[in-house]
């Protein structure tokens, strides 16, 4: 990672550009709208949503799918299996190392930028340390869901050979279902309620709504509970899938 620091920075810049596209599209929406709120979101809410959902997506991202796929394909998964620690743990700690650096670089500037923007537009400081801490805790839950979900999905590499394609397919579907493209609140009522029950809304939508202060009291506890529920489900599922596939694994070559 640190060897290709510049390369990684370009990648993040490329991703941030996508945020700016949404930013300008929403700005145009609010201009066309006469500056009124859009389905309960005013302009500053929308800006916070766009950038915080991007940031949350980065914080909780997990590369398990791709790595497992590659390792199954080239056989290097064997090297992990001969180590006397849990298979999942080797991935987890490898990833946490990378993640700390990533977050260090983008987290503070983005949160600061969002808060300064919000202060400049609304004229009041909306940053609430308690909400922020709850947000961080929810990000940890969201990361756990994503981590185990990706491990489960990674084993589809036994079926799909096109890793780039299947990974992109997953990312697209997940980013839509998690509310990263449109806030789920904007979707038709029925669809919204279905998506809120699915595990993916716990990934981005829940933490961001908490950060924005849209959830309070019992609602907050309920959604945090949903997150924990899904984290446990995927954790168990990854164990089950591991037990099933490990006997079918055959490694080619010497």
């Amino acid at each position: 990672m640190s060897t290709y620091r510049a390369n990684w920075l370009f990648y993040i810049l490329g991703d941030v550009l996508a945020c700016f596209v949404s930013f300008f599209v929403w700005e145009a929406v609010f201009i066309s709208n006469g500056g009124e709120s859009f389905m309960g979101f005013d302009k500053s809410d929308m800006v916070v949503y766009i950038f915080m959902s991007f940031l949350t997506g980065q914080v909780i991202s997990s590369g398990g799918t791709y790595n497992i796929g590659e390792e199954v394909k080239d056989g290097s998964i064997a090297m992990r299996m001969i180590k006397p620690i849990s298979y999942n743990a080797t991935f987890l700690f490898q990833e946490i190392g990378n993640k700390l650096m990533e977050i260090g670089v983008i987290f503070i500037p983005l949160v600061a930028g969002v808060e300064i923007y919000r202060f400049a537009v609304t004229g009041e400081l909306k940053f609430d340390i308690l909400k922020f801490l709850i947000y961080l805790v929810c990000c940890v839950f969201a990361y756990a869901i994503n981590f185990f979900f990706n491990i489960c999905y990674g084993f589809t590499a036994f079926v799909f050979k096109n890793l780039w394609g299947s990974n992109m397919l997953k990312n697209t579907v997940v980013s839509f279902l998690s509310g990263a493209i449109i806030p789920l609140a904007f979707l038709p009522e029925v669809l919204k309620n279905v998506l809120i029950c699915l595990p993916f809304s716990s990934l981005t939508y829940t933490p961001v709504m908490i950060y924005m202060g849209m959830y309070t009291g019992y609602e907050l506890l309920f959604f945090a509970g949903v997150q924990i529920f899904w984290a446990v489900v995927f954790w168990l599922l990854s164990k089950v899938i591991w037990k099933c596939v490990i006997n079918r694994l055959s490694i080619q070559g010497g």
């Binding site: 394609g165 579907v173 493209i181």
Partner: peptide, 30 residues
């Protein structure tokens, strides 16, 4: 690898569809 072809193409197709839903949601209001 027939499945390969479908996964990538379907992925890109869905990615565009998501954006079309996004635009449609906006034009649902304005």
């Amino acid at each position: 690898y027939k499945g390969d072809f479908l996964t990538g193409a379907v992925g890109l197709l869905l990615a565009q569809l998501c954006n079309i839903v996004f635009i449609s949601v906006i034009f649902g209001q304005i």
